[in-house]
Amino acid sequence: MHRSRVYALLIDTPTPEAEAAAAFWAAALGATARPLPGEEQFISLHGAMPGLIVAVQSVDDAPRFHVDIETDDVEAETRRLLGLGAEEVSRWRECRTLRVPGGHLMCVLPVHSDPAVFEAEASTWP
């Protein structure tokens, strides 16, 4: 058995537009835009959606939204989602990027949240 939960909503934005997009989304959602130290491609939108990480991610691709799923077993969660119809697109460090039915992207990553939050909110899968 393994556990997983939705961890983050990422607003993927072409790099030249990332700062303006972060300012827009921060104002629109009543959030505070904060660069993430050591991860220059992310601008956190603190307070945008309580209980969920929301950030603008600078990308060299088209604008889109994607969801991050955190799990205590990346391989098992990836297999579960592949079985539901997702296709693996790429791997980066311990993360897996999947394209799900409908064409959206989803990333599967190791647990990043506080362990107590993960324990309280994660679903258990066989």
Rank of each mutant, 00 (worst) to 15 (best):
M1D: 06
R3F: 00
V6R: 06
Y7T: 14
A8Q: 03
L9K: 07
D12C: 11
D12T: 13
T13E: 05
T13H: 05
P14K: 15
E17K: 08
E17H: 11
A18T: 06
A18F: 07
A18W: 09
A18H: 05
E19D: 09
E19C: 01
A20M: 13
W25I: 01
W25E: 01
G30N: 01
A31P: 01
A31K: 00
T32R: 01
G38Q: 09
E39M: 08
E40T: 08
Q41H: 15
Q41T: 05
S44T: 02
S44K: 06
S44E: 11
L45H: 02
G51E: 00
L52M: 10
I53A: 10
V54E: 07
V56P: 03
V56C: 00
S58C: 12
S58E: 07
D60W: 13
D60S: 15
D61H: 09
D61A: 14
A62D: 14
A62Y: 05
R64H: 05
H66E: 08
I69C: 14
I69H: 09
T71L: 12
T71Y: 04
V74D: 10
E77P: 15
R79L: 13
R80C: 14
G83N: 08
G83Y: 09
G83W: 11
L84E: 06
L84R: 12
E88H: 07
V89R: 15
R91M: 04
C95G: 12
R96M: 09
R99V: 00
V100P: 08
G102M: 05
M106Y: 03
C107K: 11
V108F: 11
P110Y: 02
P110L: 02
P110T: 06
V111H: 05
S113W: 03
D114L: 08
F118E: 13
E121V: 15
T124Q: 14
